[in-house]
Design a protein around this nucleic acid. Structure first.
Lengths: 189, 189
DNA sequence: GTCTATAGGGTGATAGAC
DNA sequence: GTCTATCACCCTATAGAC
């Protein structure tokens, strides 16, 4: 797949620093052939972004379908998110580094999808506060804390590496759950 | 300052996408004059990185000098780190996005300084485990969780914004401290 | 579908006058 | 210290043959 191969090249060298010629070599195609498939360099970048957002939203939908308590939902969201980062490290790297290179309609669409996912997390946190599982907290701020903790793993979490997605997701969930649990119900979970 | 003005331009448009001509316009200088000060585009990028790392390490040193328990140390590290992100949002953006553009000796030096800071955080966590304040945990993994939570604020924490650095640091510390505290001593702090 | 040639406009950096 | 002119190269994208 051109998208996957190009994601690797962009992740290594950066979007703007990577020339069309490099993409041709990596994909073993001439310029004419490559442009036949990608349309433009930015369309290729957008396709990489979509690949990530598709996977992330599929995961979030699976979690919602499975149901469960807010604690369980949040833990599952963590599992799914780290699965994506672990499985598609190059795509995620490009996603988190090169999104400012998207322009116009593509940039707007990207922001909206990203925001949509953040709202899913926020909603789970709010639900936990409502049921009393989580203590009173700022849902937006807590969402950003949770997202940062998980997304930042893109720097070191790799498919070939020592740790699986679950190896990271479990201790992360433990920190976060204890961190936001209501004080009286802290010793179980 | 050329460094500060250029950090803003890089943060907005990306390092590789920003031309020397743009930098000249932003700094109100001709090419000759600009090159007289910066040496090369990459030297300018390195100077922005150093500005961030200097501030971060100064903060870490202040924390070490002040002393206190591992919990207090970690909370202060969070305050200091978010202060830097809040005060230098453009520099930090460039720092977190464009570090792969550094090459050779500059790249090696950058990685080492960044690693040095991470070890500071890791040491505080390990100290907390040793004193029994923190439960048994993987110090490296927990460091990355803590760093991610804090660093990710570069996306939305701005100097002009609604929230101060402290407004974010306090709830973040509360989540993280409760998250890693030993179960028996959870209700105080 | 894939090739080569080329358009048209940048790029970072330097030289040498003032 | 700052200017302008210029170097040598690279960029994305397209045209038109095969």
């Amino acid at each position: 797949m051109i998208i996957d191969m190009s994601a690797k090249v962009f992740a290594r060298g950066g979007y703007h620093a990577t020339g069309i010629t490099e993409l041709c070599v990596a994909n073993d195609l001439g310029k004419g052939a490559l442009y036949h498939y990608i349309g433009s360099k930015e369309e290729l970048l957008a396709a990489i972004h979509d690949r990530v957002m598709d996977e992330v939203m599929f995961g979030a939908n699976r979690v919602a379908e499975r149901g469960g308590t807010p604690s369980q939902q949040l833990a599952m969201l963590g599992d799914e998110l780290l699965d994506v980062i672990h499985l598609y490290p190059d795509h995620v790297w490009v996603f988190l580094h090169e999104f400012p290179a998207l322009t116009g309609e593509r940039a707007a669409q990207f922001r909206e999808r990203r925001r949509m996912y953040e709202r899913r997390v926020e909603a789970v946190l709010q639900a936990g506060v409502d049921t009393g599982e989580f203590r009173e907290l700022d849902p937006r701020l807590t969402t950003m804390a949770w997202l940062g903790m998980h997304n930042y793993t893109y720097l070191w979490l790799k498919s070939g590496g020592r740790l699986s997605a679950r190896d990271v997701a479990k201790p992360f969930a433990e920190i976060f759950m204890r961190g936001i649990a209501t004080p009286t119900s802290k010793d179980d979970e």
